[in-house]
């Protein structure tokens, strides 16, 4: 239980930082709306609703990427990550706290983006919503770990999309499947499997990313 107290304290700190600095969430919101507007001009007038549903996943993925690239900015600036690494009993709490904070930002961005998508393009079904929820978990679990890795490298923000996108291809497949298939069950189960596998790998390996 004390583990979750640590996670809570760390996630709360990220939300507090966001309230103060307002760096990430407004950027994600503006970005996802701009992307949807761009998509209107990307899609030829007679293209199917299915194409729009596919593009929705591009918007979600890149919005998440935008938030993730700033995920450890505050920790990096002043080397605070060292302080957290020393103070936290189980370092995976740092990962979980950060992933939850990013999940909250991404979820908030989507609460605006999905209705906007419905308004601009086509209605958003239950399969899509369930798919988005499950995909968000995987995106944040993997993305937070990779963001910590990218932060440790010289290339930083440049590196994150390169290491992140190949790992999210299964999420895109599952998500698009959940949006467009008649029976999304299979795709939702796949997304849940992805979350479980990569969540476990990320949880178990974060310690090694922040220590030598």
């Amino acid at each position: 239980m004390t583990y979750f107290a640590d996670v809570g304290a760390l996630a709360r700190k990220d939300l507090m930082l966001e309230l103060r600095a307002r760096d990430t969430l407004p950027a994600m919101l503006l970005f996802v709306l701009s992307t949807l507007v761009v998509f209107h001009f990307v899609l030829p007038s007679d293209s199917s609703e299915l194409a729009a549903k596919g593009l929705l996943w591009v918007a979600i993925l890149f919005t998440a990427l935008l938030g993730l690239s700033r995920a450890f900015a505050a920790e990096r600036e002043q080397g605070v990550i060292d302080g957290l690494v020393l103070a936290t009993r189980d370092r995976s709490a740092i990962w979980l706290g950060k992933a939850l904070a990013i999940l909250a930002f991404l979820g908030l961005a989507e609460i605006v983006a999905l209705p906007a998508f419905g308004l601009f393009f086509t209605h958003v079904g239950g399969g899509t919503i369930a798919g988005v929820v499950l995909a968000d978990v995987g995106i944040c679990a993997v993305g937070t770990l990779l963001a910590a890795m990218a932060t440790a490298s010289r290339a930083r923000e440049l590196l994150l999309p390169l290491i992140f996108l190949p790992l999210t291809i299964p999420i895109v497949i599952g998500g698009v499947g959940a949006s467009v298939a008649g029976h999304p069950g299979k795709y939702l189960a796949f997304l849940a499997l992805y979350d479980a596998i990569f969540g476990l790998v990320a949880w178990g390996s974060f310690e090694y990313v922040v220590t030598e």
Partner: peptide, 24 residues
Amino acid sequence: NLSAVYAVFGVALIPVSFLAIRIS
């Protein structure tokens, strides 16, 4: 450390991607 963690992600990615491509 980072290389090793990424390599471990790779072996998880192989079966998961394979499954994804199959069901797609």
